[in-house]
Design a protein around this nucleic acid. Sequence first.
DNA 1: AACACTGGCAACCGCGAGCCA
DNA 2: ATGGCTCGCGGTTGCCAGTGT
Length: 345
Amino acid sequence: MGRSPCCDENGLKKGPWTPEEDQKLTDYINSHGHGSWRSLPKLAGLNRCGKSCRLRWTNYLRPDIKRGRFSEDEERKIISLHSVLGNKWSRIATQLPGRTDNEIKNYWNTHLRKKLLQMGIDPTTHKPRTDLNHLMNLSQLLGAASFGNLLSPWNSALGLQADASQLARIQLLQNMLQVINTSTLLNMDNVGLLQNQNLNPFEGLNGTSTLYQKEPLLIGQEYLNQGVIPQAPSDSLGIFNSSSGFEGQFNTEDFLASNNSTSSLSSSACENQTENPMPALVSGSPGTYTVNQVESKTDPNQFLTQSSTSTSFEVWEKLKDDEISDFYWKDILESTPSSPSPMTW
DNA sequence: AACACTGGCAACCGCGAGCCA
DNA sequence: ATGGCTCGCGGTTGCCAGTGT
């Protein structure tokens, strides 16, 4: 049922606005203000409904609208805010002067969403994707990105492909570990190997994603201080920090609590994390703590050979055989006690 | 050159919240 | 307390330009 569309009545015009209509609307609002949107069209001499006028004004004609490409900074801000607020476009828009909610929404759907997906990040939860098809894509991305960097200095200059590559590495490794971790054949002795190493899995990566690098750590306190009330779309979020790697899990309650205290998140937040043992890439809070990290001495084959999941094994094989993978990536995957990886775990 | 396909974006639609009589 | 009205938000649609075949 529902209410009939406001524009159905009286044969009001719909569709694209003409320059004449734009002019009428602009002139009227400039001299009178919009007042009641419902009565505005009549007063301004427009054959439109008030809603259409409001939309046209707020999304297009408003003088303070910023046009043109989104900057990298704006991208980071959007992603970070989205990780906390979800699809609250109007709330996100309040943090981006000159950008409308509609513009941000469109930009998210057409650019950022795809970008995150390519990087192996679920744009809804901001967590690593875990489907096995995606694992294959990631290993391909690794190859393509490495190859691309060799050929094109522009990619490196822009930092885009390099970022995707680095994140993909992390992602792939994470996803593999996650698959391994959730494998029914995985025994608890192996789980033990994944824990309690005070080592940094991201040391050796030269920086991190330009999308995730700085802003995430800003969100918690800074945006809260600006009156941004979080409505975390996911049950838990993690923190990716360029200097210390993943730093724990996060949930809405902790986020809210962090508004009163900037101290580290409670350990229970970590312990309660069962649905997705791997942390997400975007933080919701400045609080930090260390989570399970993979031991450097662990031979991944130890897990994979025990797994009946052929797909993950194929991923592993494909990755190992990938001729254009970086040295250190191979090192990570094939590291043994006698040949320490350049990336300290 | 013509057609099909795709991506980006402006605009629309429906719903919920808030206000007020 | 209730119902009507308005506004704003988020999801969706449809047009159009660019690209591929």
